[in-house]
Amino acid sequence: MKKMPQLALGPIQYYWSKQKIEDFYHQVAKTDVDIVYLGEVVCSKRRIMRNDDWMRIGEQMQEQGKTVILSTLTLLEAASELSALKKTCSHSPFLIEANDIATVQILHELGKPFVSGPSVNIYNSRSLQKLGEKGLIRWTLPVELSVTELAEFQRNRPDIIETEIFAWGRLPLAYSARCFSARAENLQKDDCQFCCQKYPDGLLLSTREDEAFLCINGIQTQSARTVNLLGEMDQFVELGVDVLRISPQSEHTIDIIERFSSVLKQPQSADRFNSELEEWMPDMACNGYWNGDAGMENCIKSPAHTGTGHD
């Protein structure tokens, strides 16, 4: 029998209040999620949670039998950010998720294994192999790649490296030096007043004909649409995907985890959750990248087309 993927909860991309974060993980502890990513990945100015707070939540998660991974910043610019990162990497009792090559280098120098998030650019097997030599034990497929590329990767990947797929959430698409949340409020980044905190699912950017297009989250730009790959479970199992990542949103994350978990237990049941899952999205659904199209497209598959073509 083929192995079913594990379920992971990605790092919170937004800037929530401390109370909301504490309450959120209190709920998460009760779910079936196997892996929990903790920590700030977008902006070094977001310091409402101190290192100790993350450590404490991590320990609580571990007590509930979850595997804890500490996520790190995606864009590292200042020397101060780099030294804070080094400290985190040296002292963390948890496995670390690298979101920049700097973190890969630091962990390699420390002789610690690591996993990589979706913003570490691994587009071919030779890159994966090379990072494996540096200590990579699990990688995340870049969100813009499709099932065709995944299948090719899975054919050649080293046995020791697991594969993770970004399966639910608004897609992280871009990072900048500029804070677009501050720009929207006419504030300077250096005096941002943490305005991103007002938008627990990011700030919608629409076209001039009111089509929801992107989502502003500080220096990060996300898709307005939410990717949902729950319906691809057959292919995940067939291709030997090890972990599915759900990216947290301000509401219904626990419900979404439960639906994923239920499909993992009973793979035929995905379709019946579609309408409620779509209701829980902050905007519409998309799955274009997975199908090799523009990321924003949403292709609704007929049940006849579930094979990978690589069997």
């Binding site: 995606t74 864009l75 913003s119 650019n121 587009y123 870049p142 969100v143 813009e144 790649l145 897609l171 698409l173 871009a174 990072y175 900048s176 030096a177 500029r178 297009f213 992107l214 730009t221 898709s223 274009g288 990248y289 090799g292 199209d293 523009a294 990321g295 924003m296």
Partner: peptide
Amino acid sequence: CVMVEGRCLLSSYATGQSPNT
């Protein structure tokens, strides 16, 4: 380029083609 080069997928999100791919 406003975004970090190599880390911007806006183009493929809209069109299927990005600088990376």
